[in-house]
Design a protein around this nucleic acid. Sequence first.
DNA 1: GTGGTCTAGACCACC
DNA 2: GTGGTCTAGACCACA
Lengths: 122, 122, 122, 122
Amino acid sequence: MDFKKSQTIYEQIADIVRENILTDKWQAGDKIASVRELAAEIEVNPNTVMRSYSSLQEQGILFNKRGIGFFVSDKAQKIIHKMDKDIFIKEELPSIFRKMKLLHVDFEELKNLYNKSKSKYL
Amino acid sequence: MDFKKSQTIYEQIADIVRENILTDKWQAGDKIASVRELAAEIEVNPNTVMRSYSSLQEQGILFNKRGIGFFVSDKAQKIIHKMDKDIFIKEELPSIFRKMKLLHVDFEELKNLYNKSKSKYL
Amino acid sequence: MDFKKSQTIYEQIADIVRENILTDKWQAGDKIASVRELAAEIEVNPNTVMRSYSSLQEQGILFNKRGIGFFVSDKAQKIIHKMDKDIFIKEELPSIFRKMKLLHVDFEELKNLYNKSKSKYL
Amino acid sequence: MDFKKSQTIYEQIADIVRENILTDKWQAGDKIASVRELAAEIEVNPNTVMRSYSSLQEQGILFNKRGIGFFVSDKAQKIIHKMDKDIFIKEELPSIFRKMKLLHVDFEELKNLYNKSKSKYL
DNA sequence: GTGGTCTAGACCACC
DNA sequence: GTGGTCTAGACCACA
């Protein structure tokens, strides 16, 4: 597994977990991989995985049962969706629109790029 | 001057320089603030400014004359525009489109948000 | 450790690293001395070593794992060999040939000097 | 006029003067360009030219007559030839031979490159 | 005055 | 422990 340098590894792991929950790969109540299992699989220090799980737990996305493991919480999907959409609309989109203006990219071009990217996944 | 802590100071300085060039505030051939001047103005260590200028020089955006100062290179604007557009189209937009899909944001909603943001600046 | 003053220290450190890789002392995947270790060993400021390692990383010769250290990249030797041979053939040799002409040194004399230098290492 | 960054401007100017003398463009007793003339021509600070001329004077290559200008000394060519050949044989060639070994360039290849470079100037 | 290098020492996040 | 950034202050060569 290879990670981007611009973001910390534990955040990138948390992102993957969040995405798996958002896309229904992992559902409410599911037991997810143990810290050691995941660490071994993606070749990362167990401390690093632990840190990801802990932060997800603080956000109410995971919960753990002592000696058993980490589980997806009931409200996980709702929480993630709200967090992500908030960031998307308040931070990411404005930054994109600002850059479009700076680079003289008009909405037509955006539309074309959108359609092109969509057709990739058909 | 205050900086975000999510990004290094020297990158933020480089970003400002790039933006000033892209928006024609500084034009090809212009002498820009000396390392010490800028450092004093934005209350930062001269070494930090130096690092920004050096990286911009490596990218071909600035050049310097010994003992005189740093200048905006002829191709600066073209280089910056190309770099920025490349990143925008190959990295930022795909990430945005991917997130739209994940969050079930359709193109109509994007269009509305775009028009809303546009009207802010009218 | 003593350095020539005609060249910056950080370039000389980078040169040593490159040479150690080129001569197989350090091989692809090897972990090299940490910034602080090397700095202590050659009695130089850690920042200076950091600067060397960073530039080697930009060139694709080294890479690092967060919190672990710097490593020799797989293509390191190939990159260095290409860089060196390019400079040798496009810059150093022409300059030598030009000087030979200027100083009226013919190819026979060069051959003699070459053989003499070679016998030194036998 | 454009200068390499790796060497100081005044040294590069001195190099040009030396070369002009070595190739008989400027001969013993000739008056060379005044400091201001040359400075204007190559767009450089007069101080910088002065520094070049001074160093050449120290080496016995130039001499000056007060209020008249700088002149090529009688022994100029001999001095330059000796200096250059010394450096060439004791420093530059050994460094080249060392690099040949490192880059696995054998003498045959050197010969080919030499002949190729020679034919360029025919 | 300018850029450029270097040191000493600090602080941080991460593994 | 590791890399990475930043500061304060010094010194140098060059214009």
